[in-house]
Simulated assay, not measured.
Amino acid sequence: MAAEANLTRDLGTGLSIDFTEQFGQRFRTLTELLGVQRTIPMASGTLLKTYTSSVTLDGTEVAPGDIIPLSEVKLEDGPSQEIKWDKKRKAVPMEDIQKYGFSRAITMTDNKLLNEIQKGVRTKLLAQLATGTTTVSAVGLQAAMAQAWGAVTAKFDEDDVQVVSFINPFDAADYLAQANISTQNAFGMTYLENFLNNRVVFMSAEIPQGTIYSTADGNLVAAYVQMASGEMAQAFDFTTDSTGLIGVTHDVNKQRLTAETITAYGLVLFAERLDGVVVGTIEASPVPDAGV
C-alpha cells in the first residue's frame, strides 16, 4: 500500500527551527533597541577584555620648530570574561505527550526553556553593568536619570551618544502612573523608548530598587560562538538560524520514553568600557522637619 499523502515528517527538526528562529529574532530585537553596533563571532574560551580609559593633554604652547610634548592616553584593563559554552537539556515524558499531544507538549516546555536562556543572558549583562566605575546620585527618578545621562554623555563626548539605561520597575511605577507612556516588551524585559532623554530604558526586577545602570549604545558588544558551521554542527546535528547564535536539537530517549530538547550556545552581551557605565542612585526626598 502506498504511503498516505501529506504526512507530517521530521517534526523534531521543525521544532528546532522554530526554537532557533524565536531566540535569534528576540536577540536581534534586543540588540537593535540597545543600538549594539558590534556583534562579533569568537572561539569558545576567548577572553573578553574590558577597560577604563583616560586622556591627559599637554597644554604647552609649542614654539615654531620646538619638539611637541607628549599627551598621555591610558588604557587600563578591567575584569575579563571568558566566553564559555552554556548547555541546557530538558525532557518531556511519554505521559505528557499523550496528555497534551507531541507538538504542544514540546512547544510549551521549549518556551519555558527559551525564557530561562534569555534570563541567563540578561542576568550576566546586568551583573557586569553593576560593576561600572562611574557613579552619580540625585533625589528622585527624573533627576537621577538626568545625572546619569549627563555622566555618560561626558564620558563619550567625542561621539554621537545615545544613552541606554536599566532600572527597577518599582522605581518607574510612580512616574508612569502620572505619565501617558506606553510600555513594550523584549527579551523578557519591559522597556520604554525615548524616555527621559534615553534611547531606551529597560526595566528588570533583577536591578536593585533605587539603582540605575546607564551607558552609551556604542559601548555594548555582543560576542558569540558561531553555531551554524564547523565540527560541532556536523557532529551533533544542531539546527541554527541565520545568526548562528544558538544550536538546538530534538531527540527521543527510548530507554526513558522521553522527548528531549538540547541546546548549546556561547553568548555574552557586555559593556566594553567600565568607566563608561554609570551606576546611579535614586535618593529619597528629605523628610520635612516636623518642628518647622
Results as ranks from 00 to 15, higher is better:
residue 2 A to P: 11
residue 4 E to N: 10
residue 5 A to H: 15
residue 6 N to F: 13
residue 8 T to S: 13
residue 9 R to G: 10
residue 9 R to A: 15
residue 11 L to I: 11
residue 11 L to Y: 10
residue 15 L to P: 00
residue 16 S to Y: 05
residue 18 D to M: 10
residue 19 F to W: 09
residue 21 E to I: 11
residue 23 F to D: 01
residue 24 G to D: 09
residue 25 Q to A: 10
residue 29 T to F: 01
residue 37 Q to W: 06
residue 38 R to N: 14
residue 42 M to Q: 10
residue 44 S to G: 03
residue 46 T to Y: 04
residue 49 K to P: 01
residue 52 T to R: 01
residue 60 T to M: 04
residue 60 T to R: 12
residue 61 E to K: 12
residue 61 E to L: 12
residue 64 P to Y: 13
residue 65 G to Q: 03
residue 67 I to C: 09
residue 70 L to G: 10
residue 71 S to K: 08
residue 75 L to Y: 14
residue 75 L to I: 15
residue 78 G to C: 12
residue 78 G to F: 09
residue 78 G to N: 14
residue 84 K to E: 13
residue 88 K to T: 05
residue 88 K to F: 09
residue 98 Q to T: 11
residue 99 K to W: 09
residue 99 K to Q: 15
residue 99 K to S: 14
residue 100 Y to H: 11
residue 102 F to R: 08
residue 106 I to R: 00
residue 107 T to C: 00
residue 108 M to Q: 12
residue 110 D to F: 02
residue 113 L to Q: 08
residue 115 N to H: 13
residue 119 K to Y: 09
residue 123 T to V: 12
residue 125 L to T: 06
residue 127 A to H: 05
residue 127 A to N: 12
residue 128 Q to R: 04
residue 130 A to W: 02
residue 133 T to R: 04
residue 134 T to H: 02
residue 142 Q to N: 15
residue 144 A to W: 06
residue 144 A to C: 11
residue 145 M to E: 12
residue 145 M to G: 05
residue 148 A to L: 12
residue 150 G to H: 15
residue 151 A to F: 11
residue 152 V to P: 00
residue 153 T to S: 11
residue 153 T to K: 11
residue 155 K to Q: 14
residue 156 F to G: 06
residue 157 D to N: 08
residue 161 V to S: 00
residue 162 Q to S: 10
residue 166 F to R: 02
residue 169 P to Q: 08
residue 173 A to G: 01
residue 175 Y to L: 06
residue 181 I to C: 05
residue 183 T to I: 13
residue 183 T to R: 14
residue 185 N to G: 07
residue 186 A to M: 03
residue 186 A to N: 08
residue 187 F to L: 05
residue 193 E to S: 14
residue 195 F to G: 01
residue 201 V to A: 11
residue 203 M to L: 13
residue 207 I to D: 03
residue 209 Q to V: 12
residue 212 I to A: 06
residue 213 Y to N: 04
residue 214 S to I: 04
residue 217 D to G: 07
residue 218 G to S: 04
residue 219 N to L: 01
residue 226 Q to G: 08
residue 230 G to Q: 07
residue 232 M to C: 06
residue 233 A to D: 15
residue 234 Q to Y: 14
residue 237 D to P: 10
residue 238 F to E: 09
residue 241 D to W: 10
residue 244 G to S: 08
residue 250 H to C: 10
residue 254 K to C: 11
residue 254 K to N: 15
residue 261 T to N: 02
residue 266 G to W: 08
residue 270 F to C: 10
residue 273 R to L: 07
residue 274 L to C: 06
residue 276 G to R: 01
residue 276 G to W: 10
residue 277 V to D: 03
residue 278 V to H: 03
residue 278 V to C: 11
residue 284 A to F: 11
